[in-house]
Design a protein around this nucleic acid. Structure first.
Lengths: 170, 170
DNA sequence: GCATTTGGTTGACTTGATCAACTATATTAA
DNA sequence: TTAATATAGTTGATCAAGTCAACCAAATGC
């Protein structure tokens, strides 16, 4: 068994700042995303919102379009319909959504938020606004605009635009 | 049971473009992140790299600092040491890393990539470079720089800077 | 020297997610 | 019009990733 001549274990080193241009973008993007999500999760917990991320995302979909079905949610989120069924049942059990017969298709039900569900959404949106405000506190309005424009250009280039599921994934 | 007067279920609507300024940043950021990760995962699969995301991240940590220990990896990744032990065992079983006695502390072992492990890393880095190049194809060098600067400012404001784990989380 | 802390391991368990099979309903083909 | 096929949602079974607790050996602190 070789015994390398090392002094002391150290924390993994960050990427060198002189790395080539294509490399040096994904690192800041990843760091920003990680910071945003961590902070968001922190405040969601601090706010006492007792929902796992997937439930939040499904509730968002329901609040955004109170006439969607399990199928549209599953398709939109690219998740298995079995999982969506289960999450929807959890949300119903928590009295955050209700199911209403779909007059256009007797196999499916339209999903609607309850008042409690809407209230949770309001609180989540407030949390997200606070994190975003904190994130942009050092930026001018022009800089925020620039960032958004650049983001959109890059998203377009990747060709995977998605409707928003603002809570992110982690 | 109320019967809402709805015509046809529709795909959930995207956030209105006129939303307030703090709101309108997280959506593009989320979209970009989602697009980046999706494309990355696509190419990793297409490249035939058979590793789940957590293994990739741990392998990265090991390649970045070939004298780190399970503890440093777990701390750095903010993961449970039990999980790290298991992932390290998987990577060893796949012959992508080896454990070497740590002369400074007999309770731990230094982690090193094998040649095969390094080769996987090279391929991963190539994939990431390709995705980044695609993502930035519409941007000038100044715009890329601007994006990086703005990202860093925002990350600083959130106060959760992290060493890079470039493969992202999904 | 002894008490306490720490690094890594292992068992047990939880959570989130997937796959397959199924029923009822809708759509398409004959 | 009827039968074949497709689809929306549900449920059972299972898996992968991750967590918590307990443990032992080594290191550290008093």
């Amino acid at each position: 068994m070789p015994r390398p001549t090392v002094s002391q274990p150290t924390v993994p080193q960050p990427q060198k700042p002189g790395a080539s241009l294509p490399q040096s973008l994904s690192d800041p993007l990843h760091r920003l995303t990680h910071a945003y999500k961590s902070r968001l999760r922190e405040l969601i917990v601090a706010e006492g919102i007792p929902l796992p991320i997937t439930q939040i995302r499904v509730l968002k979909g329901v609040c955004r379009n109170p006439s969607c079905t399990a199928h549209t949610i599953a398709t939109h989120m690219r998740r298995d319909k079995a999982q969506i069924t289960r999450v929807l049942n959890e949300l119903m059990h928590a009295e955050l959504i209700i199911k209403v017969d779909n007059p256009g298709d007797r196999r499916s039900q339209l999903l609607q938020p309850t008042d409690a569900g809407r209230e949770i959404m309001r609180r989540l949106q407030a949390v997200e606004a606070r994190v975003t405000a904190q994130m942009t506190q050092q930026l001018s309005a022009e800089e925020v605009s620039m960032f958004i424009q650049l983001s959109r250009k890059m998203t377009d280039s990747l060709g995977h635009a998605q409707p928003s599921t603002q809570s992110g994934e982690s």
